[in-house]
Design a protein around this nucleic acid. Structure first.
Lengths: 104, 104
DNA sequence: TTGACATGCAACCAAATGATTGCATATTAG
DNA sequence: CTAATATGCAATCATTTGGTTGCATGTCAA
């Protein structure tokens, strides 16, 4: 669970997940083409995502396909978010206003 | 949105949210009592959480109360998670097995 | 087989992060 | 007023992180 949050913290990694969501099963080179950094940098990000179980990889000959795994993200929804709120929420501004009105 | 993910990436900050969820409106000193680090370190974490709009603070005399704001977490549920999956999900193990079976 | 292509591994480096210490400011209690 | 309490600000430091370069390995095609 900790690794999932860490993995999702980086914009590049979220972008990779976005790309895989748009087109699942892309190879490393295909993913690199969209990222403005070296192949090795992308490899590291993918390794972190895989370590967090956010994607699965399959070797196909000399290529490696990457598949999005939505399970851990779903877990966040069920554990974290449900933990704090299940119904509708008031905006923060309303919350803060009410609190300050109670000032002694 | 980026700041929310960054804020949630740290275990200490998630612990602070947990503590506020259990007992909302705690002061800085109350929160520090549970964290095994200096007050200033906790202050920094709280500042990051506040910057991500995950909590609201209210000055009460010389004390400062901290209130959990569940709105951004709810946003994740609606944007990210819904983006990738809305219904039930198969386990990763199943996914990976199926993919490898298709090997040419 | 041999060359081109796709990926893997490791050392290295700059910048961001988490935490500390020391001092300053503001409020409450006696 | 004065002392104790609660918090704020800033400099500093070690570690982690994101990125690079260079080389190695493995696979496909001619």
């Amino acid at each position: 669970m900790d690794e999932v949050f860490r993995a999702l913290a980086d914009p590049t990694r979220r972008q990779l997940l976005d790309s895989l969501h748009a087109s699942n099963g892309q190879t490393l080179n295909e993913l690199c083409a969209q990222m403005d950094m070296t192949r090795q940098a992308v490899t590291k990000h993918l390794a972190i995502l895989e370590g967090a179980n956010l994607l699965a990889t399959v070797r196909k000959g000399r290529e490696k396909e990457h598949y999005l795994n939505p399970v851990p993200i779903n877990d966040i929804a069920e554990r974290w978010i449900g933990k704090y709120e299940r119904g509708r929420l008031r905006a923060l501004s309303d919350l803060k206003k009410n609190l300050e009105r109670e000032d002694t």
